[in-house]
């Protein structure tokens, strides 16, 4: 699916590059894209290392276990397979907690940890499981309590009240997260194959 989207975007972009005659700009942009990928990883890597390390420690002292019991109704609702088998439950809890608390740069590392944990249940398949999809969709409709980037941007542009958007953001995030989980659970049986639980 992702490869098809990339294909469509490439063809569309090529078409417009011909139409507008922006070949030079396009070739530069493609190379800049590759550079940006590496620089994103460079900014991501420290956060990944820090959060994966901290999580390992929290897991060892039993904090994750405690948290996941606390959030277990939510986990059961969103990730039924993980809740039932216990595989990836702690990682999912950590990821959701980080998102709820708005520790922005922890979301990606912890979500990747959760994906890895869920994948470990089916190491040989290249098909996504129901819970993995729910996690991806849930994260694309970002459910953070503190949208720090936007608020920082707003104050940088001299907003009279940078926080005025919080209430609508919470409403929108809540409704969209509920919708994300509902749609994921409704669609899951439609695309399920025999070998995926």
């Amino acid at each position: 699916m992702l490869s098809r989207i990339i294909g469509v975007i490439c063809v569309l972009s090529m078409l417009f590059t011909f139409l507008t005659g922006g070949g030079a700009a396009a070739s530069e942009a493609i190379l800049t894209g590759a550079e940006r990928a590496v620089s994103i990883v460079l900014t991501l890597a420290p956060a990944m290392a820090l959060w994966c390390g901290i999580m390992q420690v929290f897991r060892r002292v039993g904090l994750l276990e405690y948290l996941s019991r606390l959030l277990s109704p939510l986990i059961t609702l969103c990730f039924p397979t993980a809740a039932k088998t216990g595989v990836g439950r702690e990682e999912l809890t950590a990821c959701i907690t980080a998102n709820l608390l708005g520790i922005g740069n922890a979301a990606t590392p912890l979500a990747i940890q959760a994906m890895k944990a869920m994948k470990s249940a089916h190491p040989d398949t290249d098909t996504a499981s129901d819970d993995m999809i729910t996690l991806v969709v849930l994260n694309t409709s970002s459910f953070s309590i503190m949208p720090t980037t936007v608020i920082a941007l707003r104050s940088a542009c001299n907003s009279a009240d940078p926080f005025s958007i919080l209430l609508p953001v919470w409403c929108a995030s809540l409704v969209c997260s509920v919708m994300a989980v509902t749609l994921c659970r409704l669609c899951a049986p439609l695309t399920r194959k025999r070998d995926i639980p």
């Binding site: 098909t127 996504a128 999809i133 991806v136």
Partner: peptide, 16 residues
């Protein structure tokens, strides 16, 4: 997310 665990068939993830 999918790249980190080598998932190629993402099923209904992107449309949803």
């Amino acid at each position: 997310y999918f790249g980190a665990v080598g998932i190629k068939k993402s099923r209904h993830a992107l449309p949803v």
